[in-house]
Write a protein that binds this DNA or RNA. Structure first.
Length: 381
DNA sequence: TCTGGGGTCCTAGGACCC
DNA sequence: TCTGGGGTCCTAGGACCC
């Protein structure tokens, strides 16, 4: 990866041993001869740096062509697809070469007598959408035509964190299962903490003795990175699963991630919160600066009592009253329009902003805070 | 061909709101 | 009071990738 970073500032790492490099973002001769020489230099430098590890490279006008090209002459190969030659390269290949065509999709395509990428390019879009659904159908329709404008993205934020374990023997003992769950929850919580993340949704994964696999999840009002909280919720979820016939695998996952940690909110200098709010009013669209990952909250806001509940109990929600002033992390200042049945409707409106949209939230939406009346009310006339 | 341990994205249905 | 459309959030499962 370090070698690739020398080639271009824009590198997308796909896995430990695979990456896309945007050659156009570096200063390179992009002719066929130029990129061929460059690719050979990269392969040679990898071999030199690793004591002879081989690498395959594909060069093309899109991620699709580069990826398929790199697979073409696998252990130690180079493929360069000249601009204009993309379809000629793709069409003779089996559809399974396309990313997104696994066993299930291949079977559906086979029934439509599609075997090669060229066959796929002969199928009309509505037909493909009918077979594979909107997103998948449209995506394959385009890929078959080498129509691929997916950008190369450098850094990506994690969307979930999980840990799982397959047992040598199927487990039935509740105590043992709970202990394993605690272990997995500890790993997930630990990784959330090291990543400076917290999660609202906790999911357990249960594989039965016969390989059937189910998931159960619950979403909390507040994000957490506390292994004990994760474990507690995971246990409650597992309690509702029949484990008597034997469990082969257990997993714990965390998602709906927030890039901050609740506990740190009031940890240090008190002045920061006020400046954070001022920053929001100044139009810091981003919502969070890299230097201060904490959420923007109204100054009056105080952290609620730590939730003892599980998130499985019916949500009580906050007690909102019409006209009450609120602050929402995404939408800013507003006031309660109405509430009931676990929902609250807020009209967003501030001193310098005209009456904004009316939006609907869960009454316990973690991003919605009560705020003392700021000085923004339009004077009553 | 199967296993194992990470992930991502999509679909579909239900609850709820305006 | 009922119907319908648009929208969000949550849950569960499936397909796929490395």
């Amino acid at each position: 990866m370090a070698l690739l970073a020398e080639v271009s500032p824009l590198v997308e790492q796909v896995s430990i041993d695979e990456a896309y490099v945007d050659l156009a973002a570096g200063e390179h001769d992009l002719s066929v001869a130029g990129v061929t020489a460059l690719a050979e230099r990269i392969r040679a430098s990898i071999a030199a740096a690793t004591g002879g590890v081989t690498a395959s490279v594909g060069v093309g006008t899109s991620k699709l062509v580069a990826k398929i090209g790199s697979d073409l002459h696998k252990p130690d190969g180079l493929t360069v697809a000249a601009p204009g030659q993309e379809q000629a390269l793709l069409h003779p290949l089996p559809v399974t070469r396309l990313p997104g065509v696994g066993p299930a999709t291949m079977e559906r395509l086979r029934r439509g007598r599609v075997h090669t990428i060229g066959d796929l390019a002969g199928v009309a879009l509505p037909e493909l959408v009918d077979w594979l659904g909107q997103a998948h159908g449209t995506s394959l329709y385009r890929l078959a035509r080498a129509d691929d404008d997916r950008p190369i993205v450098g850094e990506r934020e994690a969307k979930s964190v999980s840990a799982e374990e397959t047992f040598d023997v199927d487990l039935t003992d509740r105590g043992r299962l709970n202990a394993e769950l605690d272990l997995l929850a500890g790993r997930v919580g630990g990784r959330l903490r090291t990543g400076g993340l917290s999660a609202r949704t906790i999911t357990i994964k249960v594989r039965h003795y016969d390989f059937t696999t189910i998931t159960r999840s619950a979403t909390r009002a507040q994000p957490t990175d506390d292994p004990r909280t994760v474990a507690q919720l995971a246990r409650r979820l597992l309690a509702e699963v029949d484990t008597s016939a034997g469990i082969r695998l257990l997993g714990v996952g965390a998602s709906t991630l927030a890039d901050f940690v609740q506990d740190d909110l009031f940890g240090d200098e008190p002045g920061d919160l006020f400046s954070a709010v001022a920053g929001a009013g100044d139009g810091a669209e981003d919502g969070h600066e890299a230097t201060d990952p904490r959420p923007i909250v109204a100054p009056e806001y105080r952290e609620p009592e730590p939730e003892r509940g599980s998130g499985l109990e019916p949500r009580k929600g906050a007690d909102w009253r019409p006209g009450q002033d609120v602050w929402h992390e995404q939408h800013g200042a507003g006031w309660v329009w109405g509430s009931g049945r676990g929902r609250v409707t807020v009209r967003f409106e501030g001193p310098n902003t005209p009456p904004g949209p009316v939006r609907d939230f869960a009454a316990d939406d973690p991003e919605l805070r009560a705020a003392d009346p700021p000085d923004w009310r339009i004077p009553e006339s």
